[in-house]
Structures are given as structure tokens and as C-alpha cells.
Design a protein around this nucleic acid. Sequence first.
DNA 1: CGTTTGGTTGAAATGTGTCAAACTTTGTGG
DNA 2: CCACAAAGTTTGACACATTTCAACCAAACG
Lengths: 249, 249
Amino acid sequence: MLPAASRSDFNPLVRKLESILSLTDDERQALLDLPMQMALIKEGQDIVREGDRPSRSFAVLSGFTCTYKMTGDGRRQIVKFCIAGDTPDIQSLHLTVLDFSITTLTPCSIGFITHEALWNLCMRHPRLTAAFWRETLVEGAIFREWVLNVGRREAYPRMAHLLCEMLVRLRVVGLADDRGCGLPITQVEFADALGVSTVHVNRVLQEMRADGLIELKGDRLNIPDWERLRQAGDFDPLYLHLRNEQAVA
Amino acid sequence: MLPAASRSDFNPLVRKLESILSLTDDERQALLDLPMQMALIKEGQDIVREGDRPSRSFAVLSGFTCTYKMTGDGRRQIVKFCIAGDTPDIQSLHLTVLDFSITTLTPCSIGFITHEALWNLCMRHPRLTAAFWRETLVEGAIFREWVLNVGRREAYPRMAHLLCEMLVRLRVVGLADDRGCGLPITQVEFADALGVSTVHVNRVLQEMRADGLIELKGDRLNIPDWERLRQAGDFDPLYLHLRNEQAVA
DNA sequence: CGTTTGGTTGAAATGTGTCAAACTTTGTGG
DNA sequence: CCACAAAGTTTGACACATTTCAACCAAACG
């Protein structure tokens, strides 16, 4: 038996890629052979910062991180929540300067991979190149949906939509059960992701609780009635570009 | 002399790619040899629609188009303005179902390219694959900035930011002069892009005119004082990932 | 157990939306 | 070239979602 770290079912990166295409043994092995420098990073630490010119990218192996940007006067906008299997700064392979920062929302286990190793991998395995490209395209699709969500939905459905998205994404990587999921996101962070004030997030969450749409306490989100939440959030998972098998909810 | 349509300096697609990497003669020729089906599309026509499964992508050769999404109750959010050289649905090469629609804002000249031809091109020219990938990554960076813009800036700076972005992007493809640029975007379309109401767009534009930040009449935008507009919009072109030579303003 | 972090509350201020009407410009056909 | 229609812009009054501020409370933590 291989050590747990390299067993493909325990490697979130491999798991993620397998969810979008069937890897050959060769490709799977190439992924597992990627030289990864592991790091445990505590909560509230920036992993990379806007303006950085990284020579390596990283995969989130466990924990929650988020990608964010700041306005000139210091307001924060979270543009993505990153979970196990995500490679949120893989774009630095092509774009030298980062236009965003990434920070940890919980203690995280991170695997750094040099751009050199990634280039080699992509050279030898065009299908993996395609898979990584595809990943970045899905990421782009999510950004588009966020523009829609923030631009055209009021706070209540906006929050509902975000919760739907998080549940589905967590389910895909096996981090949700039939009741709900762990969701270590504070109200301040929800506010920064939805483009509203913390106070308003609080009021909206209370309303949603009162309406029986969610049970949210501490790091745990339960969803008693998926269909009603889905409708409240006007949520259609099309934009996540899941493969059919990855049943929604 | 080659016919105008295949002269590289008149082919917006080639021009765009040359702006991000130096093409070899071989690569340039491969691009010019791409079988493109030309079409003239009048204003206000959808080129593709959410849910479509296209077997070809297209390049905008002239005119303005925009990518948009709709909420369930029929509100529109424009997520991108597409100009000459853009290939706004190239993602359909990897993601079978479209999660957005694209419509024309002006009469447009469009060049359709089959996915098959694009695949062949990418197979033979890995650097072009990389260039297209890079393009989609920059697109993603723009979406992120839009999330920030819509989420964390008020209507006035939000509009200023959008105008800055449009001017810079148009300049890169040679569609701006030192006074400003042509900008065939109506107030309704601004509203749908910024996530505000038409009425409010109107008021904000009047304010900006009164402040001497812009001259906007019909399809023409002049910017008397770039630096002030830049500041008003909290605009930093980093996220556009221009090459240094593409001087900003 | 005190301290910190995150959550909750109320009242007042405000940015933005809505509605409905009028106005202006642009394009088109007679 | 005018007349008309269509498209786009402007206006005012009012409604309302959301912000701000400031305080307080609860839970988590060392």
C-alpha cells in the first residue's frame, strides 16, 4: 500500500482532475509524481499577495482559502472560496504578476508545485494541459455568475445562491453529506464575498433561518429543504459545468 | 499584396495574439490559414445563447458585442464587453454547454472557426494553445475585477472604472486616439453592466460630465483628464495583464 | 476566567430603485 | 427634405434596500 499522501483517492488534486476526465495510469502517475512541497498554514495568513510574481503555484489539499482583491480605500472583495483540490493561482503559470491575494480561512494544508514542474507535466501530457485549462475556464464561469449574483440579485437571494454554490462544490469533492456541509465562513467573510455589509449579512441570515431555509451555526451549514433554497437563490448549477454523474443535491 | 482579409495587420485575431507573444512566421501563417466563415450580423442579434452546445467558436473582427447572463426573473447582467480581436466563446472548446449568451451592440463582422480547426491548430502549435489559454486567463482576471467593481464600489466610481477599462482595452487594439474613443454603449447597457438602474446611470453620467471627467455624447467618449478619471475609478490596469509596451493612457 | 472573536440589535442616514412622463436624437420611408 | 416612428435620454417625486454607527451579547479560547 502506498503512503496515504500519494494514494490517488487521498490526493485532492488527482481527485479533482479525475472528476473532469478519466486519467490514464500514466497521467495519474505523472500527477502523483509531481514534486510537491507541503506546508501547513495557519488561519488568517496570506499565501500569496497581489503584485507577487510567484515561481510556483499551489494546490489546496485541505482547509478553506479565499481569493480576494482590495479597493484603493481598503475595502475587501472576496472573489472566490477555494476548497480541497483547487489550484487558485495556477494562472501564474501564464500571467507573471498576480492580480489578487489568497488567504486562509482555516488552517490549511497546501502543496506547492514549481512552475517548472508544471510546465514539464503539461509538455508531456497534453490532456492534463487541457484539464488544467478547463479548470480555469470553469473558474471563469463562476466569476461570471458572481458578477450576476452581486450585480442583479438582492442580498437575500444572493446569499442563498452562494450557499447553494458552496454546497454543490463541496459535495463534488466529498465534503458534504445529505444534511449539509461544514462551512467555516464568518459573517464578515460572507459580507466581503457578497458585497454587502456585515450587519446586513446578519439580518439576511436570520431571515433565512426564520424561513426555515438554512440551519447555520458555527462552522456547520444544514439545508433542510434544498429545493426551496435553490429557488430562493435562483440557483442553476449549469455554470459549474459538472459532469452529469455529479448529481446535484 | 495579400487581400486585406488575410493581411495580418488587418486581422484583429492575429493582432490580438501578437500583442501577447511574438508569433513565428509559421504560427502567423497557421492563424491566417484558419478556415473562417465570415458573417455580418446586425445590431441586437444574439450570436450564441446560454444552453447552446456550439461546434464552432468565433472571433469578433469588428463591432461591439457583449456577453450577458439573465436571472430567473428576467434581469440582465452584462459580464463583458467584447471588441475586435476577442474570442468570447472560445471556452466552448472545452466546456460543451454555454453558460452565457452573446449579443451584438452594433453591426458586427464575425469570423466563425470550427472547434475541429481550432483543435488542429492547438495540436500543431503549443505556443498558440498557451496564448489562447492566456487569453482566457486575462478574461478571468477581468471578471474578478468586475466582481470587485460591482461589489465594493459605488455607482460613480464604478462607472469611472468601467470607462477606464474600456478606453485601455480599445487603445490596445488601436481603437482609441488621444482624446478618447468610440463607445457605442447605451445607458441601458451601462446599467446592465454595472448592476444599477438606467435612471441612476443617467444621473451618474451627468455628474461626471459636470465634474469635467468625461465628454460622452452619442457613440463618442472623450476623456479630458485621464488622471482624474483614473483616480475617480480607483483604476489600476494591473489586472489587464498588458505587456509593458502597451503604455497605459 | 478574562480576553478575543464573532454575532446581534436599533435608529438614523443614504444610495439607489421605481414609476411615469416628457424630451431629444437618430433613422427611415414617403 | 420633411414627417414620423423608434430609440435613447432626462426629469421629479417617492419608496426602499442597504449602510453606518454604536452598543451589547455570546461563544470560543488560552
